[in-house]
Design a protein around this nucleic acid. Structure first.
Lengths: 203, 203
DNA sequence: GTCTATAAAAAGATAGAC
DNA sequence: GTCTATCTTTTTATAGAC
């Protein structure tokens, strides 16, 4: 969820916000192609059709732009996780839904996710810590579903942490090949993944 | 496997080679901490206890050093895959062995693997292509084992490519937390991972 | 084989005109 | 809101002494 604006942040027009969002998305694509540090400000300006002056009118710094991309990913992922929580179903059904939602985000935002999974160390210590916390929160959602399944006897007595990491790896790794317009849709991958994983831990 | 030296490469002493290997390993650790582009030559020199002049006596360029780290990872991974091929067992046993070998490499070379999985785009086009080919060869080993299991009736009729990608994701993702001296050993993770995956695709 | 000094280019960010 | 020109720092790599 977006945080409330603090009082020292200037008021911005809707037009400004829309243009900024465009810049964030376009820049994510450029970063995903060449890497964060390898991409210069000049290159970002060219991709966005702006000069340096105009560019810095929309972003505070290159690193703040990177944080905005991270924000987009975590926001989307958490929205998906919340939808699953509210749906309420068996642990198996919830795990399958979590996979659907996660792959949907990866499919819709492949560039943002690439940046999220690669350029985390480029964030300042303070911002890195903020995203570590949010990431951990998501992981705990997955662990909680696994634990619920173990408690209900639906899943065998696997290690929830280790199993959550296996599940996350299997799903997160799709960022390398799951693209909009690609041969495989999010659902095409999510269904067989859920089949494998849920059979794999079923009693 | 290491490629044969071409005639235009100068002869090097054993001492030179040993020192160079140390430099490659130490530099991998530094890259894994801060990222390839964010790490300067001066920083690498300091970590290796050398001045610039001496440093460039052992490496051709920063990018050539990066390629050496990639080489180390692919060499080790392929050696493991070859061991599995020669062992010959049921597809289930082979898949479990592949997982053992892969996690063993990730456990022994966490920094090199980090660099391998993050800094691939920093390689020149030519070298990137070379590693793309070797990576694809490894993926095909995994697909071949899956196909063998389907043919023998041991595994159900899953999509070999999609299933190989799921398997790779589950295992590769361990680079984030599988470290020498850590709470979990390579075997500790490989066993439950194989249990989940093989049950997941069994008939 | 290792050092110091330096070159040459590129980086992120800002100033001030319009 | 957008531009061009510029500042300051840092980058990778080389030269040449020892």
């Amino acid at each position: 969820m977006p945080r409330a604006a603090t009082s020292d942040e200037p008021q911005r027009s809707e037009k400004w916000k829309a243009r900024r969002n465009e810049i964030v998305d376009t820049s994510a694509r450029v970063f995903a192609r060449g890497g964060y540090h390898a991409t210069g400000i000049v290159e970002l300006c060219a991709a966005n059709g702006l000069g340096k002056g105009a560019f810095y009118h929309y972003i505070e710094s290159k690193e703040e732009l990177l944080a905005a991309i991270h924000d987009r990913v975590m926001d989307e992922v958490m929205v998906g996780a919340d939808r699953v929580s509210q749906a309420s179903g068996s642990p198996s059904a919830q795990l399958a839904m979590l996979g659907d939602e996660l792959l949907d985000v990866i499919h819709r935002y492949p560039d943002h996710v690439w940046v999220f999974l690669h350029e985390f160390p480029a964030l300042t210590a303070e911002r890195a810590q903020q995203f570590r916390v949010r990431r951990r929160q998501y992981e705990q959602r997955v662990e909680a579903v696994l634990q619920a399944g173990i408690d209900s006897g639906e899943f065998r007595a696997v290690d929830p942490r280790l199993t959550a990491l296996a599940w996350l790896g299997m799903h997160n790794y799709t960022y390398l090949w799951l693209k909009p317009g690609g041969r495989v849709s999010a659902r095409d991958a999510a269904k067989p993944f859920a089949d494998i994983f849920i059979r794999g831990i079923a009693t």
